[in-house]
Design a protein around this nucleic acid. Sequence first.
DNA 1: ATCCATTTGTGCGTATGTATG
DNA 2: CCATACATACGCACAAATGGA
Lengths: 262, 262
Amino acid sequence: MPPLYRKIATELRKRIISGELSPGDKLPTETQLQDQYDVSRNTVRLATALLLNEGLVESVPGRTGGMVVRERVTLTYHASRAEMPHGLWAESDAWFGEVRAQGHEPTQEFELRIEAVTAAIAERLGVEADSTVAVRRCIRRVNGQPSSVQSSYYPMDLCETVPELLSPRDIPHGTTRLLAERGYQQLGAEDELVAAMPTPEEVTLLRLNPGTPVLHYIRTGFTADRPVRVSVTTFAGDRNRVVYTLGDAEVIARFRDRDSTE
Amino acid sequence: MPPLYRKIATELRKRIISGELSPGDKLPTETQLQDQYDVSRNTVRLATALLLNEGLVESVPGRTGGMVVRERVTLTYHASRAEMPHGLWAESDAWFGEVRAQGHEPTQEFELRIEAVTAAIAERLGVEADSTVAVRRCIRRVNGQPSSVQSSYYPMDLCETVPELLSPRDIPHGTTRLLAERGYQQLGAEDELVAAMPTPEEVTLLRLNPGTPVLHYIRTGFTADRPVRVSVTTFAGDRNRVVYTLGDAEVIARFRDRDSTE
DNA sequence: ATCCATTTGTGCGTATGTATG
DNA sequence: CCATACATACGCACAAATGGA
């Protein structure tokens, strides 16, 4: 027999998932739920806290506020199209194009820092634990709302050959192409994907609601000799999706076309 | 100025992240925190609830219990190695091999069901919204602990040509190879990755602690003509990582070797 | 096997603060 | 300014789980 607050949460959750309550609708107020279930306000709040943590609702204070059922808009990020392997597009160009194609307005802000590496980055980048790296950080927004944060790490010795990396602005045709032009051609990459709960820093950066997980997407790019770049992208979990196309992309495109014309 | 419970959570979080409190260590008890910060028990519990939801700690009731700092063991799933494109391995064989290679003991249980499709599956599988599909469900455990749940959906017409799909047991060399032998060669696939908070069902299935997100991994497999399979894998977010190798896998392997021999 | 001490879990009541229309 | 919603904080009580005496 589950405790009261769980039962209340379960009933409300059902009403949300079934569609009886659709995005934008409001749950009964705390007072209404108190009366309805004949419980204390504290118990009601335990129930709604569960739904908040599941990301099903968000709370809006004020006269006309309440617990509002959240909407889920998903933006797709095509990882296998970005910067690989005969990279026609710069990664940021690719992202801009994708967002626009999905009917939204992309913006991004760049930032450059020189930092000491963390253990996780050092290992992937194949540099000493106490070395410094150039970090190109980029906040990407969709319709003004923060959507993802990307930090790209480059070994310092690379920046001597390619000083443009130290520019705190967008690089016109993308860093991948720039590196290739200077003899560092990215031949392979390894992508890692992890779901996690955000750190408080990520919460403020991405304006995450409580209960929103993030998707960490870590790409390590290799030339023939060694890793030349590690980029860590943090996606707001409820607003993003990462997609890979494997094998023959034609068969998939063909199906999509047939699908949309029928 | 953040509220009291957030300040307490922030201090405790710092001690965990800095390593002052390592996995297995216990936070001060609720009573100790009450005295230490001179707050009510409720406030202390609001603080620890945050850490619980971030997955940093888990609670153990009882005499010697407490809030224990959680350990993070990550298992790697190589998505680009599984079943594609010249598929040497069956997907489950591949998974078994990977888990063993990482020094753990894999087990899995199969289950077969015939179900009406959901909208999400119907769209990906290219079938009518009211049609039925064969669902092969598989719970994968690592060292006895549930690690991921995979549901593979096949259109019913496929099961007439390939009746083995309806077996509620493992298929020796994998369904991908079986389908290929019957003329349904999987030429391409599309993978989608999404971070989400688990449904209560997923919580019980995967024995998830509160505050643990999941990683949904959806693969749609295509023959030259159409989708033949959709598999939805739900990974416990704190115990799994999905990896893709893009481009020239050699350059990455070379670096790994050099790395491990030095 | 029993009881006890400790710790977290659930639940009640109350008061005051803050945001919004 | 007020009414209403959620947010923070206090206090209390008892239940459930766990390990040790």
